[in-house]
Design a protein around this nucleic acid. Structure first.
Lengths: 146, 146
DNA sequence: TTTAATGCAAACGCTTTGCATCTGG
DNA sequence: CCAGATGCAAAGCGTTTGCATTAAA
């Protein structure tokens, strides 16, 4: 994405365009691993060494409030963010915390039962799968899931 | 549920049967609001006034590890637990934190795409809907979702 | 120039943990 | 008896916040 397009996007969202926000958003769009705030921080410090961790937190919160990033309901101890705001689902490894995307039909906003619409205003819907990934299981693993 | 049946259930799970665990589990099965540890604590203190908050945390963790309760991936600041371990889905209010159940077809374990099975060992799958509930919206509310 | 964003450091709140004591099996 | 559970208090850790400074518009 062009930097000029980002300036326009930020302006439309009522956000000042700062270099900190630029590198954070760029890192979020590029990331495929649903990074935590601290992970984002480590990455962007290569490009903006003076950025503070609180600014990363504040930036992610600002982007989330504008719908430019999403928080993944992964359930670990640290919040995980997603730069892909298109509809998709998540698998979470309860052991290592890895998060992967997957797609499937039949579980998007339009598939929800009318009871959900009656409940209030829906922002997003996703399938959340929890388990243990293959890397954590190892070859021919037979241990219990926890 | 009979108290004798609970003793058997706990024994099968390798858990000693204590009054603290008894009241916590009973409260979890009775609850419909997916309470936090502190909410559970407030409730069980009526029946077991000496119980400590850490014991509630430890008990919920032990029950979760045995699959007797579930953690709801609600995303708020405090962990929310569910005494209903049958397959169902959740709607979460981003404003007040209320969590409701709903059911729908097409999004259970058996409906997941093969890519998920290839990913590892799946423990559970649910649809997670986020939005603002009617109580928080109020009558004829037109504010933005956040 | 005016309003918002940043960095720093301290505070905050939920959760976990070490340890001595107690208790279920 | 003895391994495991509990209560207490303190620590841990991710996240938030107050405030002075800096920078975008």
């Amino acid at each position: 994405m062009q930097i000029e397009a980002l300036k326009i996007l930020f302006a439309q969202s009522g956000l000042k365009f700062t270099n900190q926000r630029y590198v954070v958003y760029k890192a979020m769009v590029a990331a495929r691993d649903h990074p935590s705030a601290e992970t984002v921080w480590r990455r962007v410090r290569e490009e903006a060494p003076a950025i503070s961790l609180d600014t990363v937190y504040r930036t992610l919160a600002a982007l989330e409030a504008r719908g430019l990033v999403t928080r993944v309901p992964a359930g670990g101890d640290e919040a995980r963010f997603d730069g892909d705001v298109t509809a998709h689902h998540h698998v979470v490894c309860l052991r290592c915390g890895a998060i992967s995307d997957f797609t499937m039909t039949g579980a998007t906003l339009t598939d929800l039962p009318p009871t959900v619409a009656a409940w209030g205003r829906v922002r997003d819907a996703q399938v959340l799968v929890r388990g243990i990934c293959h890397k954590c299981l190892g070859p021919n693993d037979n241990t219990q899931p926890n």
